[in-house]
Design a binder for these strands. Structure first.
Lengths: 219, 219
DNA sequence: CGGCGCCTCGGCCCAGGGGCTGATCCCGGT
DNA sequence: ACCGGGATCAGCCCCTGGGCCGAGGCGCCG
């Protein structure tokens, strides 16, 4: 029997979740709370296996509560619930030690599944989150700041000497006009260079290029 | 009914998996293959919902097969199975478009759970893999050139929490509209934040602020 | 209670950024 | 002699970025 704690500031939501979860014979809802403070207090009293935690709550919100939950002696598996699939939430949630991140439009069947899954030690993320996370995990060789530097240099190697000079100036925070003054060319020329730099690097704005140049040690 | 294809070079393993999966009324095993070539061929013929794929197989191995499966018009959800929890495998698997990665010591109940989970569009990773992946995804501290880093952090300390979030998104190269989408606010609000960030930092454009945030290890 | 700071948003304005076309010049390779 | 690519610039377009003003809500503190 998986002992579960529900925390959401809206009574109706808690009741709905309870209905869904208790339809499964393997799950028991052992408590309900309405804010982050209660979440921590109840988790200590009840030592649940799984805590379902809304992110947006008055006072101590779900993210703060999750961080404190994961610091408890018998830390429960924490699943965060939210209406909005925001990057900031996801990062915050995972950094806070959550093992689940679900949207509130998750079907009942999936919610039950999620409780079982996290209870077994797995993670359970909403599909959209999973997608972004897999992309990040699979794609890049993460920046070792030593290796990231050479990687940046490699990507920048397609640039010509003049383009390199322009990009350095851009990475110093100069406007196109200032770059022109610094390098002795018209602003229109600077813009032409920046355009080709972005095209070569497959980027959409100067900030990304500036960061890359910075990583390469150019500024 | 979830239509499933099993691929493993050992007959005994396939039979065992079939026994386990068909114990669930919602799962049907529609085919079996013994190597990567067969996996691709059968997937085209049968268009299964989920493919369970062993990594170590003679000829075309599971990773290569997974990559080709994910390129199919009606790509199945691919779950890779392996005895050894090697980072190299995990990266390869996820890069190949797999949505599941399980060890062969996974309990039967969990395997059934996994098939349902991936069929719903979620990911299903072995706990050990999940743990490493979450760490990397949540990874806040590159812990590198700490020299200018603390100085940057000092200068950025005047920013509020929300402003910090906005600046991070800006430093990732996002446009104001994209920042808004990522943080759940209107573009006008983003612009208000950026304006105040620049004023607080005494800077004239977002590139300078982005570089500073980058130095602080925020992006 | 009344401030004050933070967060939120709208509207307005205009400067800056970026794409596109097209042009000239120069240089090095064919 | 020709061609290709880099560098230079112009003019045009539209979208984005940033400043400014004003507004309302919320939470905290004296």
């Amino acid at each position: 029997m998986i002992r579960t704690l529900l925390v959401d500031d809206e009574l109706l939501v808690r009741s709905g979740l309870r209905m869904i979860l208790e339809a499964d014979p393997g799950i028991a809802v052992v408590g309900e709370g309405s804010d982050g403070e209660e979440a921590v207090r109840l988790a200590q009293e009840l030592t649940p296996d799984v805590v379902l935690l809304d992110i947006r709550m008055p006072g101590t919100d779900g993210l703060a509560a999750a961080a404190r939950l994961s610091a408890l002696p018998q830390a429960p598996k924490t699943v965060l619930l939210t209406t909005f699939d925001l990057d900031e939430y996801v990062h915050g949630a995972l950094r806070a030690g959550a093992v689940g991140f679900l949207l509130k439009d998750t079907p009942p069947r999936e919610l039950i599944n999620a409780v079982h899954t996290v209870n077994e030690g797995h993670a359970m993320l909403a599909p959209s989150v999973t997608k972004r996370m897999l992309e990040r995990f699979a794609a890049p060789a993460p920046a070792d700041s030593a290796a990231g530097r050479t990687e940046a240099l490699r990507r920048l190697s397609v640039l010509s000497e003049r383009e390199r000079q322009v990009l350095v100036a851009v990475a110093e925070g100069k406007s196109n006009a200032e770059v022109g003054r610094a390098l002795g060319m018209r602003e229109t020329t600077v813009k032409a260079h920046v355009s080709r730099i972005l095209a070569k690097l497959d980027m959409s704005n100067r900030v990304q290029a500036a960061i890359l140049a910075h990583d390469a040690g150019w500024a």
